[in-house]
Design a protein around this nucleic acid. Structure first.
Lengths: 214, 214
DNA sequence: TTTTAATCGATAATAAAATATCGATAAGTA
DNA sequence: TACTTATCGATATTTTATTATCGATTAAAA
Protein backbone atom coordinates (compact mmCIF):
# COMPACT_ATOMS: atom_id res chain seq x y z
CA UNK A 1 0.00 0.00 0.00
CA UNK A 2 1.42 3.34 -1.05
CA UNK A 3 0.67 6.05 1.45
CA UNK A 4 0.88 9.70 0.68
CA UNK A 5 4.44 10.95 0.84
CA UNK A 6 4.64 14.14 2.83
CA UNK A 7 8.03 15.65 2.39
CA UNK A 8 9.87 18.84 3.19
CA UNK A 9 13.06 20.61 2.15
CA UNK A 10 16.22 19.32 3.80
CA UNK A 11 16.82 22.67 5.55
CA UNK A 12 13.43 22.30 7.17
CA UNK A 13 14.21 18.77 8.31
CA UNK A 14 17.39 20.11 9.89
CA UNK A 15 15.64 22.90 11.72
CA UNK A 16 12.82 20.83 13.17
CA UNK A 17 15.06 19.15 15.77
CA UNK A 18 16.10 22.61 16.95
CA UNK A 19 12.51 23.55 17.60
CA UNK A 20 11.94 20.22 19.26
CA UNK A 21 14.77 20.82 21.72
CA UNK A 22 13.30 24.15 22.64
CA UNK A 23 9.81 22.71 23.01
CA UNK A 24 11.14 20.06 25.33
CA UNK A 25 12.46 22.85 27.51
CA UNK A 26 9.07 24.56 27.41
CA UNK A 27 7.29 21.35 28.29
CA UNK A 28 8.98 21.43 31.68
CA UNK A 29 7.26 24.72 32.41
CA UNK A 30 3.50 25.26 32.56
CA UNK A 31 3.27 26.58 29.02
CA UNK A 32 0.29 25.22 27.13
CA UNK A 33 0.66 27.03 23.82
CA UNK A 34 3.60 28.24 21.74
CA UNK A 35 3.51 30.52 18.75
CA UNK A 36 5.90 30.58 15.82
CA UNK A 37 6.94 34.02 16.96
CA UNK A 38 7.93 32.80 20.41
CA UNK A 39 10.16 30.13 18.95
CA UNK A 40 11.59 32.55 16.42
CA UNK A 41 12.42 35.15 19.03
CA UNK A 42 14.15 32.63 21.22
CA UNK A 43 16.20 31.20 18.35
CA UNK A 44 16.74 34.56 16.65
CA UNK A 45 15.03 33.42 13.48
CA UNK A 46 12.38 34.71 11.11
CA UNK A 47 8.93 33.83 12.51
CA UNK A 48 7.59 33.17 9.03
CA UNK A 49 10.24 30.55 8.42
CA UNK A 50 9.46 28.87 11.72
CA UNK A 51 5.77 28.84 10.92
CA UNK A 52 6.36 27.37 7.47
CA UNK A 53 8.58 24.66 8.92
CA UNK A 54 5.95 23.82 11.50
CA UNK A 55 3.22 23.79 8.89
CA UNK A 56 5.09 21.22 6.86
CA UNK A 57 4.65 18.75 9.71
CA UNK A 58 0.90 18.99 9.08
CA UNK A 59 -0.24 20.55 12.35
CA UNK A 60 -2.90 23.27 12.39
CA UNK A 61 -2.57 26.16 14.78
CA UNK A 62 -4.95 28.71 16.23
CA UNK A 63 -4.71 32.41 15.41
CA UNK A 64 -3.68 34.66 18.25
CA UNK A 65 -2.42 31.85 20.47
CA UNK A 66 -0.32 29.54 18.31
CA UNK A 67 0.08 25.79 18.61
CA UNK A 68 -0.77 23.47 21.45
CA UNK A 69 2.64 22.58 22.89
CA UNK A 70 2.17 18.86 23.37
CA UNK A 71 0.46 18.52 20.04
CA UNK A 72 3.26 20.37 18.28
CA UNK A 73 5.91 18.19 19.86
CA UNK A 74 4.02 15.13 18.77
CA UNK A 75 3.62 16.49 15.27
CA UNK A 76 7.35 17.09 14.82
CA UNK A 77 8.10 13.79 16.46
CA UNK A 78 5.84 11.88 14.13
CA UNK A 79 7.03 13.76 11.08
CA UNK A 80 10.64 12.84 11.82
CA UNK A 81 9.57 9.32 12.68
CA UNK A 82 10.97 9.71 16.14
CA UNK A 83 7.99 8.07 17.76
CA UNK A 84 8.85 4.81 16.06
CA UNK A 85 11.89 3.48 17.82
CA UNK A 86 14.17 2.22 15.05
CA UNK A 87 16.49 -0.58 16.09
CA UNK A 88 20.04 0.10 14.97
CA UNK A 89 23.49 -1.46 14.88
CA UNK A 90 26.62 0.52 15.58
CA UNK A 91 29.99 -0.40 14.11
CA UNK A 92 33.28 0.91 15.45
CA UNK A 93 33.61 1.14 19.19
CA UNK A 94 36.38 3.74 19.29
CA UNK A 95 36.13 7.08 21.01
CA UNK A 96 33.24 8.41 18.98
CA UNK A 97 31.42 5.10 18.88
CA UNK A 98 31.54 4.83 22.66
CA UNK A 99 30.39 8.40 22.99
CA UNK A 100 27.35 7.70 20.84
CA UNK A 101 26.62 4.46 22.67
CA UNK A 102 26.67 6.54 25.82
CA UNK A 103 23.97 8.92 24.67
CA UNK A 104 20.94 7.37 26.20
CA UNK A 105 18.96 10.26 24.76
CA UNK A 106 19.15 9.10 21.17
CA UNK A 107 16.19 6.97 22.09
CA UNK A 108 14.21 10.19 22.07
CA UNK A 109 15.23 10.61 18.47
CA UNK A 110 13.97 7.28 17.22
CA UNK A 111 17.31 5.55 17.49
CA UNK A 112 17.68 2.43 19.57
CA UNK A 113 21.12 0.88 19.35
CA UNK A 114 20.68 -2.79 20.12
CA UNK A 115 24.13 -4.14 19.28
CA UNK A 116 27.63 -2.90 18.53
CA UNK A 117 30.40 -4.41 16.44
CA UNK A 118 34.12 -4.11 16.07
CA UNK A 119 37.09 -6.03 14.68
CA UNK A 120 39.34 -5.32 17.63
CA UNK A 121 39.58 -8.47 19.78
CA UNK A 122 40.36 -6.31 22.79
CA UNK A 123 36.83 -4.96 22.92
CA UNK A 124 34.84 -7.88 21.51
CA UNK A 125 32.82 -9.52 24.26
CA UNK A 126 32.93 -6.49 26.51
CA UNK A 127 29.78 -4.61 27.37
CA UNK A 128 29.32 -0.88 27.06
CA UNK A 129 26.19 0.62 28.58
CA UNK A 130 24.63 -2.78 28.59
CA UNK A 131 25.35 -3.37 24.92
CA UNK A 132 27.59 -6.26 24.05
CA UNK A 133 30.32 -5.76 21.47
CA UNK A 134 30.22 -8.46 18.80
CA UNK A 135 32.67 -9.40 16.06
CA UNK A 136 32.02 -7.64 12.78
CA UNK A 137 31.54 -10.82 10.79
CA UNK A 138 28.31 -11.53 12.65
CA UNK A 139 26.75 -8.28 11.47
CA UNK A 140 25.14 -9.19 8.15
CA UNK A 141 23.44 -12.32 9.43
CA UNK A 142 22.20 -10.75 12.62
CA UNK A 143 20.96 -7.66 10.83
CA UNK A 144 18.91 -9.83 8.49
CA UNK A 145 17.48 -11.92 11.28
CA UNK A 146 16.59 -8.92 13.43
CA UNK A 147 15.35 -6.77 10.55
CA UNK A 148 17.60 -3.89 11.48
CA UNK A 149 16.97 -0.74 9.45
CA UNK A 150 19.66 1.66 10.62
CA UNK A 151 23.43 1.29 10.74
CA UNK A 152 25.66 3.76 12.57
CA UNK A 153 29.24 3.85 11.31
CA UNK A 154 31.94 5.19 13.59
CA UNK A 155 34.90 3.44 12.01
CA UNK A 156 38.19 4.73 10.59
CA UNK A 157 38.00 5.83 6.94
CA UNK A 158 39.99 2.85 5.74
CA UNK A 159 37.38 0.41 7.02
CA UNK A 160 34.30 2.38 6.10
CA UNK A 161 33.49 1.01 2.65
CA UNK A 162 33.85 -2.58 3.74
CA UNK A 163 31.61 -2.08 6.76
CA UNK A 164 29.04 -0.31 4.59
CA UNK A 165 29.04 -3.29 2.23
CA UNK A 166 28.38 -5.56 5.18
CA UNK A 167 25.45 -3.40 6.22
CA UNK A 168 23.97 -3.53 2.74
CA UNK A 169 24.47 -7.27 2.78
CA UNK A 170 22.45 -7.35 5.99
CA UNK A 171 19.57 -5.43 4.36
CA UNK A 172 20.15 -2.32 6.39
CA UNK A 173 18.18 0.53 4.81
CA UNK A 174 19.80 3.65 6.19
CA UNK A 175 23.38 4.45 7.16
CA UNK A 176 24.45 7.20 9.54
CA UNK A 177 28.07 7.65 8.59
CA UNK A 178 30.68 9.45 10.66
CA UNK A 179 33.68 8.42 8.56
CA UNK A 180 35.05 11.06 6.18
CA UNK A 181 34.57 8.84 3.16
CA UNK A 182 32.27 9.01 0.18
CA UNK A 183 30.61 5.61 0.35
CA UNK A 184 29.57 3.79 -2.79
CA UNK A 185 26.13 2.37 -2.11
CA UNK A 186 23.10 1.18 -4.06
CA UNK A 187 20.77 4.05 -4.95
CA UNK A 188 18.08 2.77 -2.63
CA UNK A 189 20.12 3.02 0.56
CA UNK A 190 19.61 6.20 2.58
CA UNK A 191 22.90 7.77 3.56
CA UNK A 192 23.49 10.59 6.00
CA UNK A 193 27.07 11.71 6.33
CA UNK A 194 28.21 13.54 9.42
CA UNK A 195 31.42 15.26 8.46
CA UNK A 196 32.75 17.16 11.42
CA UNK A 197 35.29 18.88 9.20
CA UNK A 198 32.39 20.51 7.35
CA UNK A 199 31.26 22.50 10.29
CA UNK A 200 34.85 23.13 11.30
CA UNK A 201 35.55 24.54 7.84
CA UNK A 202 32.77 27.07 8.23
CA UNK A 203 34.08 28.05 11.64
CA UNK A 204 37.73 28.47 10.69
CA UNK A 205 36.90 30.34 7.52
CA UNK A 206 34.66 32.81 9.31
CA UNK A 207 37.26 33.24 12.01
CA UNK A 208 39.94 34.02 9.47
CA UNK A 209 37.69 36.60 7.85
CA UNK A 210 36.95 38.19 11.17
CA UNK A 211 40.58 38.39 12.23
CA UNK A 212 41.69 39.70 8.86
CA UNK A 213 39.03 42.38 8.84
CA UNK A 214 40.34 44.12 11.95
CA UNK B 1 44.49 47.20 8.08
CA UNK B 2 41.38 45.92 6.38
CA UNK B 3 42.14 43.21 3.84
CA UNK B 4 39.77 42.21 1.12
CA UNK B 5 37.12 39.86 2.42
CA UNK B 6 36.66 36.94 0.10
CA UNK B 7 33.61 35.02 1.11
CA UNK B 8 31.44 32.21 -0.17
CA UNK B 9 28.01 30.75 0.51
CA UNK B 10 27.80 28.46 3.51
CA UNK B 11 26.90 25.45 1.35
CA UNK B 12 30.16 25.97 -0.50
CA UNK B 13 32.14 26.14 2.73
CA UNK B 14 30.57 22.86 3.74
CA UNK B 15 31.42 21.12 0.50
CA UNK B 16 35.04 22.21 0.31
CA UNK B 17 36.16 19.82 3.06
CA UNK B 18 34.60 16.99 1.09
CA UNK B 19 36.72 17.84 -1.91
CA UNK B 20 39.74 18.20 0.30
CA UNK B 21 39.30 14.69 1.67
CA UNK B 22 39.14 13.31 -1.83
CA UNK B 23 42.17 15.30 -2.94
CA UNK B 24 44.16 13.95 -0.02
CA UNK B 25 43.38 10.49 -1.31
CA UNK B 26 44.52 11.50 -4.79
CA UNK B 27 47.70 13.01 -3.43
CA UNK B 28 48.82 9.54 -2.40
CA UNK B 29 48.69 8.44 -6.04
CA UNK B 30 50.77 9.91 -8.85
CA UNK B 31 48.01 12.24 -10.05
CA UNK B 32 49.25 15.70 -10.93
CA UNK B 33 46.06 17.33 -12.12
CA UNK B 34 42.39 17.00 -11.19
CA UNK B 35 39.44 18.45 -13.04
CA UNK B 36 36.12 19.52 -11.58
CA UNK B 37 34.53 16.73 -13.57
CA UNK B 38 36.74 14.08 -11.96
CA UNK B 39 35.77 15.22 -8.50
CA UNK B 40 32.12 15.50 -9.46
CA UNK B 41 32.01 12.00 -10.92
CA UNK B 42 33.60 10.52 -7.84
CA UNK B 43 31.25 12.32 -5.45
CA UNK B 44 28.20 12.01 -7.73
CA UNK B 45 27.77 15.74 -7.97
CA UNK B 46 27.24 18.32 -10.66
CA UNK B 47 30.62 19.27 -12.17
CA UNK B 48 29.54 22.88 -12.56
CA UNK B 49 28.84 23.14 -8.87
CA UNK B 50 32.22 21.66 -8.04
CA UNK B 51 33.94 24.09 -10.38
CA UNK B 52 32.08 27.04 -8.89
CA UNK B 53 33.02 25.98 -5.38
CA UNK B 54 36.65 25.62 -6.39
CA UNK B 55 36.64 28.97 -8.12
CA UNK B 56 35.47 30.66 -4.98
CA UNK B 57 38.74 29.70 -3.31
CA UNK B 58 40.49 31.89 -5.88
CA UNK B 59 42.49 29.29 -7.79
CA UNK B 60 42.79 29.46 -11.59
CA UNK B 61 42.69 26.25 -13.59
CA UNK B 62 43.80 25.27 -17.05
CA UNK B 63 41.35 24.31 -19.78
CA UNK B 64 41.42 20.69 -20.83
CA UNK B 65 43.43 19.50 -17.85
CA UNK B 66 41.94 21.08 -14.74
CA UNK B 67 43.71 22.14 -11.57
CA UNK B 68 47.15 21.31 -10.29
CA UNK B 69 46.45 18.91 -7.42
CA UNK B 70 48.86 20.30 -4.83
CA UNK B 71 47.94 23.86 -5.69
CA UNK B 72 44.23 23.09 -5.36
CA UNK B 73 44.72 21.49 -1.98
CA UNK B 74 46.65 24.50 -0.84
CA UNK B 75 44.00 26.84 -2.18
CA UNK B 76 41.20 25.13 -0.26
CA UNK B 77 43.40 24.88 2.79
CA UNK B 78 44.18 28.56 2.78
CA UNK B 79 40.62 29.55 2.05
CA UNK B 80 39.37 27.63 5.07
CA UNK B 81 42.26 28.94 7.13
CA UNK B 82 43.44 25.42 7.76
CA UNK B 83 47.06 26.29 7.15
CA UNK B 84 47.02 28.55 10.18
CA UNK B 85 46.95 26.30 13.20
CA UNK B 86 44.43 27.86 15.57
CA UNK B 87 45.02 27.12 19.21
CA UNK B 88 41.86 25.98 20.93
CA UNK B 89 40.47 25.04 24.33
CA UNK B 90 38.08 22.17 24.81
CA UNK B 91 35.57 22.05 27.64
CA UNK B 92 33.81 18.89 28.74
CA UNK B 93 35.89 15.74 28.83
CA UNK B 94 33.04 13.25 28.59
CA UNK B 95 32.67 10.66 25.88
CA UNK B 96 32.47 13.06 22.98
CA UNK B 97 35.10 15.38 24.37
CA UNK B 98 37.56 12.54 24.74
CA UNK B 99 36.76 11.34 21.25
CA UNK B 100 37.55 14.76 19.83
CA UNK B 101 40.69 15.07 21.91
CA UNK B 102 41.69 11.75 20.39
CA UNK B 103 41.41 12.93 16.81
CA UNK B 104 44.98 13.87 16.11
CA UNK B 105 43.86 14.74 12.58
CA UNK B 106 41.99 17.90 13.53
CA UNK B 107 45.40 19.50 13.29
CA UNK B 108 45.00 19.11 9.55
CA UNK B 109 41.91 21.23 9.82
CA UNK B 110 43.48 24.17 11.56
CA UNK B 111 42.47 23.09 15.04
CA UNK B 112 45.08 22.61 17.71
CA UNK B 113 43.61 21.77 21.09
CA UNK B 114 46.13 22.90 23.66
CA UNK B 115 44.18 22.45 26.89
CA UNK B 116 41.01 20.83 28.13
CA UNK B 117 38.73 21.74 31.02
CA UNK B 118 36.11 20.10 33.17
CA UNK B 119 34.35 20.53 36.49
CA UNK B 120 34.53 16.87 37.44
CA UNK B 121 37.26 16.40 40.05
CA UNK B 122 37.67 12.81 38.92
CA UNK B 123 39.23 13.87 35.65
CA UNK B 124 40.94 17.12 36.61
CA UNK B 125 44.69 16.65 36.66
CA UNK B 126 44.61 13.61 34.42
CA UNK B 127 46.15 13.70 30.98
CA UNK B 128 44.44 12.60 27.79
CA UNK B 129 46.57 12.31 24.67
CA UNK B 130 49.17 14.49 26.32
CA UNK B 131 46.68 17.20 27.15
CA UNK B 132 46.15 17.99 30.81
CA UNK B 133 42.63 18.45 32.12
CA UNK B 134 42.28 21.67 34.08
CA UNK B 135 39.50 23.01 36.31
CA UNK B 136 36.96 25.11 34.49
CA UNK B 137 37.52 28.20 36.59
CA UNK B 138 40.98 28.62 35.12
CA UNK B 139 39.62 28.92 31.60
CA UNK B 140 38.93 32.63 31.22
CA UNK B 141 42.28 33.77 32.58
CA UNK B 142 44.28 31.26 30.63
CA UNK B 143 42.41 31.96 27.42
CA UNK B 144 43.19 35.64 27.76
CA UNK B 145 46.85 35.05 28.52
CA UNK B 146 47.31 32.59 25.67
CA UNK B 147 45.18 34.51 23.18
CA UNK B 148 43.03 31.51 22.39
CA UNK B 149 40.59 32.06 19.52
CA UNK B 150 38.57 28.87 19.41
CA UNK B 151 36.56 27.10 22.09
CA UNK B 152 35.19 23.60 21.65
CA UNK B 153 32.19 22.80 23.82
CA UNK B 154 31.36 19.18 24.54
CA UNK B 155 29.42 19.68 27.74
CA UNK B 156 25.91 18.68 28.81
CA UNK B 157 23.17 21.11 27.78
CA UNK B 158 22.64 22.31 31.32
CA UNK B 159 26.22 23.61 31.59
CA UNK B 160 26.52 24.99 28.07
CA UNK B 161 25.49 28.61 28.55
CA UNK B 162 27.68 29.08 31.58
CA UNK B 163 30.70 27.63 29.82
CA UNK B 164 30.03 29.80 26.79
CA UNK B 165 29.96 32.87 29.03
CA UNK B 166 33.33 31.86 30.43
CA UNK B 167 34.70 31.57 26.92
CA UNK B 168 33.44 35.02 26.00
CA UNK B 169 34.97 36.32 29.22
CA UNK B 170 38.28 34.82 28.05
CA UNK B 171 38.06 36.68 24.72
CA UNK B 172 37.49 33.54 22.71
CA UNK B 173 36.30 34.53 19.24
CA UNK B 174 34.71 31.38 17.87
CA UNK B 175 32.78 28.58 19.56
CA UNK B 176 32.33 25.09 18.15
CA UNK B 177 29.33 23.90 20.11
CA UNK B 178 28.21 20.28 20.40
CA UNK B 179 25.56 20.87 23.06
CA UNK B 180 21.95 20.96 21.86
CA UNK B 181 21.40 24.43 23.21
CA UNK B 182 20.80 27.76 21.59
CA UNK B 183 23.54 29.86 23.15
CA UNK B 184 23.04 33.54 23.84
CA UNK B 185 26.22 35.26 22.75
CA UNK B 186 27.38 38.73 21.71
CA UNK B 187 26.84 39.34 18.00
CA UNK B 188 30.55 39.36 17.31
CA UNK B 189 31.24 35.84 18.48
CA UNK B 190 31.30 33.21 15.74
CA UNK B 191 29.18 30.21 16.64
CA UNK B 192 29.02 26.87 14.88
CA UNK B 193 26.53 24.42 16.29
CA UNK B 194 26.95 20.73 15.65
CA UNK B 195 23.57 19.21 16.36
CA UNK B 196 23.73 15.48 15.79
CA UNK B 197 19.96 15.25 16.05
CA UNK B 198 19.72 17.41 12.91
CA UNK B 199 21.32 14.86 10.70
CA UNK B 200 19.49 12.09 12.53
CA UNK B 201 16.20 13.82 11.83
CA UNK B 202 16.90 13.82 8.11
CA UNK B 203 17.81 10.15 8.25
CA UNK B 204 14.83 8.94 10.22
CA UNK B 205 12.39 11.02 8.21
CA UNK B 206 13.69 9.69 4.91
CA UNK B 207 13.63 6.17 6.27
CA UNK B 208 10.02 6.51 7.33
CA UNK B 209 9.11 7.80 3.89
CA UNK B 210 10.88 4.92 2.24
CA UNK B 211 9.29 2.29 4.42
CA UNK B 212 5.82 3.80 4.06
CA UNK B 213 6.11 3.98 0.29
CA UNK B 214 6.46 0.23 -0.16
C1' DT C 1 -21.04 43.81 22.43
C1' DT C 2 -17.62 46.08 19.79
C1' DT C 3 -12.91 46.99 19.16
C1' DT C 4 -8.13 45.88 19.16
C1' DA C 5 -4.16 43.10 18.67
C1' DA C 6 -1.79 38.91 17.71
C1' DT C 7 -1.25 35.05 15.02
C1' DC C 8 -2.37 31.78 11.59
C1' DG C 9 -2.48 30.19 6.70
C1' DA C 10 -2.22 31.10 1.87
C1' DT C 11 -0.13 33.43 -1.73
C1' DA C 12 3.27 36.60 -3.69
C1' DA C 13 7.83 38.56 -4.01
C1' DT C 14 12.61 38.34 -3.19
C1' DA C 15 17.00 36.27 -2.47
C1' DA C 16 20.12 32.51 -2.71
C1' DA C 17 21.80 28.47 -4.67
C1' DA C 18 22.19 25.17 -8.25
C1' DT C 19 22.31 24.20 -13.05
C1' DA C 20 22.82 25.36 -17.97
C1' DT C 21 24.94 27.76 -21.84
C1' DC C 22 28.65 29.27 -24.52
C1' DG C 23 32.97 31.37 -26.05
C1' DA C 24 37.95 30.85 -25.00
C1' DT C 25 41.91 28.06 -24.32
C1' DA C 26 45.06 24.46 -24.36
C1' DA C 27 46.35 19.43 -25.05
C1' DG C 28 46.25 15.68 -28.05
C1' DT C 29 45.70 13.85 -32.84
C1' DA C 30 45.38 13.76 -37.94
C1' DT D 1 49.73 23.00 -38.97
C1' DA D 2 44.85 22.38 -38.68
C1' DC D 3 41.35 19.88 -36.32
C1' DT D 4 39.10 17.82 -32.44
C1' DT D 5 38.02 17.48 -27.74
C1' DA D 6 37.93 18.43 -22.87
C1' DT D 7 37.72 21.79 -19.62
C1' DC D 8 37.80 26.33 -17.81
C1' DG D 9 35.56 30.83 -16.69
C1' DA D 10 31.93 34.06 -17.24
C1' DT D 11 27.21 34.88 -17.73
C1' DA D 12 22.36 33.47 -17.92
C1' DT D 13 18.60 30.64 -16.48
C1' DT D 14 16.15 27.80 -13.48
C1' DT D 15 15.10 26.01 -9.19
C1' DT D 16 14.87 26.18 -4.34
C1' DA D 17 14.54 28.51 -0.10
C1' DT D 18 13.51 32.52 2.49
C1' DT D 19 11.04 36.63 3.43
C1' DA D 20 7.01 39.68 2.80
C1' DT D 21 2.08 40.66 2.30
C1' DC D 22 -2.60 40.27 3.47
C1' DG D 23 -7.18 38.48 4.62
C1' DA D 24 -9.23 35.41 8.20
C1' DT D 25 -9.67 34.06 12.85
C1' DT D 26 -9.74 34.24 17.63
C1' DA D 27 -8.59 35.87 22.45
C1' DA D 28 -8.61 39.65 25.25
C1' DA D 29 -9.62 44.50 26.28
C1' DA D 30 -12.63 48.48 25.98
Amino acid sequence: MKRELISAPIPTLKRLPKYYHLLKKYSKTDKQYVSARMIADELKMDPILVRKDIQSTGIVGKPKIGFELKELMKSINTFLNWDNLNDAFLVGVGGLGQAILGYESFKNYGLNIVAAFDVNKEVIGRKIRGIEILPLDKLANLAKRMHINIGVMTVPPSAAQEVADQMVEGNIQAIWNFAPVDLKLPETIILENVLLSQSLGVLTHKLAQKINSI
